[in-house]
Design a protein around this nucleic acid. Structure first.
Lengths: 203, 203
DNA sequence: CTTAACTCGAACAGAGATGTTCGAATTAGG
DNA sequence: CCTAATTCGAACATCTCTGTTCGAGTTAAG
């Protein structure tokens, strides 16, 4: 009778244990929202529900508002990305090489989430986005710190700017590949060469 | 009686000579649209009209649809930018220095139009945007070609990618300043140093 | 098997945005 | 001064999106 309780999906540890089909629906919705929002940040909720193979009412049953859905989707994407990047070895070898490895491993996935992040910015505000993003940035931050200590990374510019440079170049490469202006097979090497040059200590 | 004829503003050379107050209205609308769309690409037409100090009906009199308005605003912004960048000396001295001059002169203005470009992308499609943008890119393209001929700019990566790198770093700097994470007074020097390093021939 | 949880389509209410129409009041231009 | 161009507010029709409600059917779980 009262099937939808608007129990926030991202609820705390006291969250009610959901039934198997409910969990299946939620997973399908998050996947569909991730895919849909990543290609077009303005899709409406009905479209996302359709893509998830789920009724619109069901979606609203799990995510009370569009904002809640976007928020949960962003969290989902962050977790997804973080898991994928955990596989990259950042410890061994000089920092620039490790950075190149990280770059070649992550430019595609970062691009996939680019539009989603735009949607998040618009609907959730900068603050909430920044908190999520920082988690991913820490990975690079630590690596750059090691490189600076070893003298392999330039120290004449702010550390935050170097991180920004890294991400900006990754995003740019992904965009260029997307637009067909850069060969996907060359992209990894190209972005690595550019990042390395940009972050190398000046002569 | 029939005051609004929906004569396209961007009409060809045979465009009807408009009265002075009409031209004033159009200018006010374009300025307001530029400002409004630049800060928030989703503003509605009513808001733009209000910002222009003009009735909504008047706006629709000159721009038959929202799309036509966005299109005209983009053209307006491109012209504005191009005029501002014409003042930069790109001929004298080594290409990297000229590039640094161009960078420090243009990162602010590029950022101001960033959101507008996003709106254009969404409402006009990639094609129409790309055509406009290419005009501005040519300026950099020529400069990089000169630098490559002189041996001041790297030739181991595609020329188009170097252009992309340049713009990506400019946009990133503008974003960082916007977010308060980069000192505006440092931004010019910072972005110039980074661009120079990224485009320098590798050792 | 029994019950509570879940799903679903259809339909509704409300908000907001886009364009249009009308009629009256200004205003530029010759 | 005369006329046609222009502006304006108010009101209307239409569309799309969000979020809700209802009632009936389906499914997991014990």
């Amino acid at each position: 009778m009262a099937p939808e309780r608007h129990q926030a999906v991202a609820a705390g540890p006291a969250a009610t244990r959901r039934r198997a089909d409910a969990r299946r629906s939620i997973a399908a919705i998050l996947d569909a929202a991730l895919a849909s929002l990543s290609t077009s940040p303005e899709v409406n909720v009905a479209e996302i529900a359709r893509a998830a193979g789920v009724g619109r009412v069901t979606l609203y049953g799990h995510f009370p508002t569009r904002e809640a859905l976007v928020d949960a989707t962003v969290a989902h994407a962050i977790a997804h990305t973080s898991r994928a990047l955990d596989a990259v070895d950042l410890e061994s070898g000089p920092a620039p090489q490790a950075l190149a490895r990280l770059a070649t491993s992550s430019w595609q996935i970062l691009n996939q989430h680019r539009q989603l992040m735009a949607a998040g910015m618009r609907h959730l505000g900068t603050e909430r986005m920044r908190a999520h993003h920082d988690q991913a940035l820490d990975r690079v931050r630590a690596l750059l710190a090691r490189g600076r200590a070893d003298g392999d990374i330039r120290t004449d510019l702010p550390a935050d700017w170097l991180i920004t440079t890294y991400y900006a170049l990754l995003h740019a490469a992904a965009e260029e590949v997307n637009a067909g202006r850069l060969d996907p097979r060359e992209a990894g090497h190209t972005v690595a060469a550019t990042v390395t040059a940009a972050l190398r200590p000046p002569p």
